[in-house]
Nucleic acid binder design. Structure first.
Ligand SMILES: [Mn+2]
Ligand SMILES: [Mn+2]
Ligand SMILES: [Zn+2]
Ligand SMILES: [Zn+2]
Lengths: 148, 148
DNA sequence: TTCTGAAACAAGAACTACTCTCGTTTGATA
DNA sequence: TATCAAACGAGAGTAGTTCTTGTTTCAGAA
């Protein structure tokens, strides 16, 4: 089982042109065995059990390499800082992955009842959040003319 | 204009049982004039133009007071720390506002086409993110029995 | 298999965003 | 106007993350 996971990782590294290092393999194995949504610190703690000499910096760097290669995803938009919404109107947002600006979207009619029904009954819902992530017009180098 | 904003703020403070301090008034005016989604640091910079002696700590504290009172909202969920998603399956998440755990939700059929259509044409969409925020079963003190 | 240069590594300093502590000032109530 | 709890400013402290530097390791060439 561990063998197939290891060879699967080596295959992935060949595809993505990544060097297969011992540290990356151990981090990958740990990630594939963690069933929740771990923080870098939690991954570091787990990996240290198997490889006590690994540094936290290497864990961060490895995670960024894996994210860039698409081996894993991040679940937290991770803007790094609190952002305030002074506008009380109900609206959705577009988050630019490059410049981190947040753009208001025009109101749209999305039926979120199926999503609400997927929440366990003993959970208390505060609100549903719909957002779109991508690259904004400014960062993608294209602009709409004022009358478009 | 400034007068009505000031008296509106005093009204809000009376309703929410908040002391009306000069610092809070200046922060409130700044917020209501900022049309994007400012960070605490940006708010601090702006407010310092009018009130150079204000401290960054006061800006943070004031924002938390305003958030708790519902005068403003925050637009960035989970800006605290990076969280990894090792699970490649498509699914949505529940974010607990108290313990910050992230729970996978059962797949549900939500039609996001109207939301996609609200994105300006020169923006590049990476992905749409649907999530629910609230209090998880553990934090709300209720548990479902195993056979519920 | 051995050699070699580039990439990855560990250690720890540095940095950013945020919170806490404490002595002083201020605003709401009497 | 007097009182005192609440709010403030200054700055130390903390958590999460990135950067720097010298050493080690990996992948391709010999
Ligand atoms: Mn907005
Ligand atoms: Mn998940
Ligand atoms: Zn952008
Ligand atoms: Zn919780």
């Amino acid at each position: 089982m561990g063998q197939t996971l290891d060879s699967q990782f080596q295959q992935l590294c060949r595809e993505k042109q990544l060097a297969v290092t011992h540290q990356r393999l151990v981090v990958y194995r740990a990630l594939m065995q963690m069933c929740d949504h771990p923080s870098p610190e939690q991954i570091y703690e787990r990996v240290r059990g198997e490889l006590p000499s690994i540094s936290l910096g290497t864990v961060y760097k490895t995670l960024h390499v894996f994210l860039a290669a698409g081996l894993i995803r991040e679940v937290s938009p991770h803007h790094g800082s609190l952002r305030i919404e002074p506008n009380a109107e109900h609206h959705c947002h577009f988050f630019c992955l490059q410049c981190h600006t947040i753009t208001d979207l025009e109101p749209s009619e999305v039926d979120v009842v199926p999503l609400m029904n997927s929440v366990p009954e003993n959970f208390q819902v505060d609100r549903v959040s719909l957002e779109v992530r991508g690259v904004c017009g400014h960062c993608s180098g294209s602009f709409v003319s004022a009358d478009a």
